[in-house]
Amino acid sequence: MAAAARVADDEGGQHPALAFLIRAWPWLFLIGLCVFFESWSRASYGVTFLGNTFNLQSIALFAAFPLLLGLGQTFVIIAGGIDLSVGFVMGLAAVVMARVMQYTTPVDPALALALGILAAIAIAMVPGWINGTLISRLRVPPFIGTLGMFGVARGAGFLIAGGTTVPVNNPWLFAMGNERLFGVPIPVAITLLVVVAMHWTLAQSKFGQYTYAIGGNRIAAVRSGINVRRHTLLLYMISAGCAGIAGMIYTARFSAGAAQAGEPILLDSIAAVVIGGASLFGGSGTILGTLIGALIIAVIQFGLVFINVEPFWQFVAVGIVIIVSVLIDQSKGRLTGERKDAE
């Protein structure tokens, strides 16, 4: 009996090399991209691509926004949902922060920054809570619910901004967006802190474990006594909170809030999550994967501008990377000999 079971085990085992390739492909791809751009830059222009601080800082700044939106999105996608509203929640947070700081800066610039940060995070929680409630209590499909919030947050952002951008003249805010700590731009440092917190939560805490369980088998999660409704609500609030932090950094970098701040980032952020190995069907994904995904997108976009490839090729390149990632995700089972049931 035992012997029979062992044979079955071996049949179901993964080819170690193939399994490694599939798990490590985003890393390998990122390294490949860097090598490609480095050699191209040296050959064509005689300059280094990665070997200087300015480029590294620029790539990190480039990656920061899609990464921040992607961090919360990773949780939501692992649990089998999607949050389409994050782009405009980011814009709403940026606008509200700028408005609050416009009024309070004349009183005390440092206090104004503190209030602005609080306002950005607090306002982001509102759409997050509404998304979560719609999806967990009222059973609205995530795609529809967050698409509705996409519109609401967008409208609210433009209304509060009066249709334009909201400038703030505050030295503390400017410093937060543009200064460096030990050579690391402050927006990048903040993003890294959020990455560490999110990674810990997803990989080490019960909360993270439940997120995977809900995405893997919702019914099993419910039967195991996990409060799936409350958890789902929290997931969408985390996602909105990350968008709020992104909005806050946006306002700091540009000394102004804009309602459309995050609009172009939404798709990049979802792409980062998917490239990082999360399945849109839920159940898998990691924060480190999303980090790599965001870096891949940033390196491609920065690199193609750097080596002066015609702009429209950038869409094509990012599109191909997304399709390839999804194909790899889809074929994981087949390639690794994953099994359904014995016989």
Partner: peptide, 25 residues
């Protein structure tokens, strides 16, 4: 002449392009 830009009229899109272009000095 280097010609590089973003697909949307939006600072979020334009600024990274600006930085990458600046990197080329």
């Amino acid at each position: 002449l280097i010609y590089q830009g973003g697909p949307e009229f939006n600072p979020t899109v334009q600024v990274p392009v600006l930085q990458a272009v600046t990197a080329r000095q």
